[in-house]
Design a binder for these strands. Structure first.
Lengths: 246, 246
DNA sequence: CCAAAAGTGTTGGGAATACACCCATGC
DNA sequence: GCATGGGTGTATTCCCAACACTTTTGG
């Protein structure tokens, strides 16, 4: 049954030419982000063979029969990182340029995957983290997909609790500020970050304190995110409805 | 008829089982919105045959070889509305539930398509507008796609100029308020709408005035949108960078 | 003059930024 | 005590919502 490429045979004539050829391969790609050393990084693997030999690619692979795209993304990412380390996964967009792969047509649905800062997944030898501000030579349309994923992340940081998927279990406000700064790409004030996120109920203080300090300094309150799934906390930039009760 | 499935024949064995069966049909679906009679409407056609006989469907159809998804959406929508009447088209999301179509697996990429208020496209007999607040019985996952499209529209109205694709060429602030109210689903103040959109440079006054009034009233300034393609006008709900120059 | 619709002035509130100042720890 | 980093208090700014009031038309 399996092991066959659908052979296009002209069985019947139809009103639309090529009606039988309307079958496509489809891949799921994961844009895996993690903040490391104060910079937002993306997981890429280096191609050993043409096309784009030596260039860097997003992890991913073909959609299987009976499989959903999200599950496919998870399955292929499992080859690179432990799946429980992916704290958030969401669909980004589907690329359909017929020549995005020079060999053969293949559609690609990209997913945004976020790994909390402290996780240190062990990676296959061909796979490493790259700062998104300094992407290496990328294969296919992957560089543009990474930029698009970054835009999505940037936007959602300001009106959702998506930071939960980038921050470790507990953290100080300073650490969270570094995470936000790295993801947004510009400096963020710890003072305001703390106030905004606590007022919105996005983060909450824990009983614990951070261990004093390496070279002095007041011990910091440890915070955690109140929820560990995506919540839109700031839906209306303008034109709010009269009484928006929860 | 068309719909000839690719005949699977055992040609070669490969390292990954089912590697050659990973071919899928793919359809582009259009969620066409227009504000009519003060309500947001969506274009649906009624199915004459099973499955979901009698239920209402989104316009769309199969992706062709060599065709991009956006072009495919346009091509299939052309059967329902004049393409120039679609002022904005953007990709929404891709659905991949293996059983979303009970007959055979088919992936679907949904597009949001907006038609300005005054256009009155002539429709095929099986196709009509339906208020999104009172959707009829819908086929497949189409009802949920419509809801998702509406959410996207709602969100973008507050931080982009996307209203340009729902409003006619020129309009009074009152008319624009009705458009926004319909799309958002709750009342909007004309006073504030005018101020917000002019301050952001989204709309601008034209030299013209609306004809006096039917039963009295001051003639209104005619406005137009400054741009006719999507512009994000209010990108930062919080955490704005220090100096965000254009 | 009155009704109707448009447009402007003004006020108030909420939220975000900026900055000053106080707190707690190591040395 | 002093340096270092954490946290709070407060002022300022900006933006939006609400409402009052003025403007311009038709009858």
């Amino acid at each position: 049954m399996s092991h066959v490429r659908p052979v296009t045979m002209c069985l019947v004539a139809t009103e639309e030419s090529n009606a039988e050829a309307n079958y496509f391969r489809h891949e799921a790609l994961g844009v895996v982000f993690q903040v490391r050393d104060g910079r937002l990084n993306v997981l890429l693997w280096q191609r050993a063979e043409p096309p784009f030999e030596g260039a860097w690619s997003l992890p991913g692979g073909l959609l299987d029969p009976g499989e959903r795209l999200g599950a496919s993304a998870s399955r292929h990412l499992a080859a690179k990182v432990d799946i429980p380390e992916i704290a958030h996964l969401e669909q980004l967009e589907t690329r359909s340029d017929p020549v995005r792969d020079p060999r053969d047509r293949i559609l690609a649905t990209a997913y945004l995957a976020l790994v909390p800062a402290r996780a240190r997944p062990c990676l296959p030898p061909d796979t490493t983290w790259h700062p998104v501000d300094a992407l290496p030579d990328c294969a296919f349309d992957h560089a543009s997909i990474v930029r698009s994923a970054r835009e999505r992340l940037r936007a959602k940081l300001s009106y959702t609790n998506i930071g939960f998927a980038l921050a470790p279990e507990t953290f100080t406000v300073s650490q969270l500020r570094d995470t936000y700064s790295a993801a947004l790409g510009y400096p963020v004030s710890a003072t305001n970050l703390q106030r905004i996120l606590t007022r919105r109920g996005v983060i909450e203080a824990t009983p614990g304190l951070s261990r004093p300090a390496p070279s002095g300094g007041r011990p910091a309150t440890l915070y955690r995110f109140a929820a560990s799934e995506l919540v839109v906390t700031n839906p209306f930039a303008a034109f709010r409805p009269r009484a928006a009760e929860a």
